[in-house]
């Protein structure tokens, strides 16, 4: 791993960690479990976009481990990990098939996957069919927050390209 990449991955892990933590301190606006902005996924998607699956997964898992170890309980760990990893896999597959112009669509589907995975974990833990009444709410929130994150990345992309790739316009052009 090149020094620059190592530094950037460490920096982004710290950034994702702080975003995740600050978000957990925000008051709950909608009292439905599972509905939150999920802004730390911006970092996951940026790294996926520029560096690929392995580096993004590394940062994602480190972030979730850190947050759960320092502030959370085992419960938040299982939810975050299931949601985060499935979301990452979905976005990875979609990014392979889609042009980078379609980041908001990729991100919206990722958000949807994230929430559906969390719902599955909730069902596994509570063993109650009652949790499925949250499905439409979680679907709407996943799609909307995902799309917003995708738009944020679209606007950030020109600046990030300079930072992350020594100024080449399309870093993964050779693929």
């Amino acid at each position: 791993m090149k020094t620059k990449k190592l530094t950037i991955l460490a920096l982004f892990t710290a950034l994702a960690f702080v975003i995740h933590y600050l978000e957990s301190m925000l008051p709950t606006l909608i009292p439905i479990p599972g509905i939150k902005p999920g802004l730390a996924n911006i970092i996951t998607l940026i790294l996926l976009y520029y560096y690929g699956f392995k580096d993004s997964a590394l940062v994602l898992i480190t972030r979730i481990l850190l947050v759960s170890l320092l502030f959370g309980q085992f419960l938040s760990f299982s939810y975050s990990l299931a949601g985060g990893v499935l979301c990452l896999i979905a976005e990875w597959l979609l990014l392979k098939a889609l042009n980078k112009r379609f980041i908001p669509i990729v991100s919206a589907l990722g958000g949807l996957t994230h929430n559906m995975a969390q719902l599955a974990v909730a069902f596994a833990l509570t063993k109650s069919k009652g949790v499925f009444s949250y499905l439409p709410y979680l679907a709407v929130s996943g799609i909307i927050t995902g799309a917003v994150i995708g738009l944020i990345i679209t606007f950030l992309a020109p600046h990030l390209t300079v930072l992350l790739t020594d100024g080449q316009t399309y870093p993964k052009q050779d693929e």
Partner: peptide, 18 residues
């Protein structure tokens, strides 16, 4: 075309949920 299909699919899920 693939992006369009995905977009339509997302809209359908969104509208049904709402």
């Amino acid at each position: 075309r693939f992006a369009l299909i995905l977009g339509i699919l997302l809209s359908i899920i969104l509208i049904t949920s709402l």
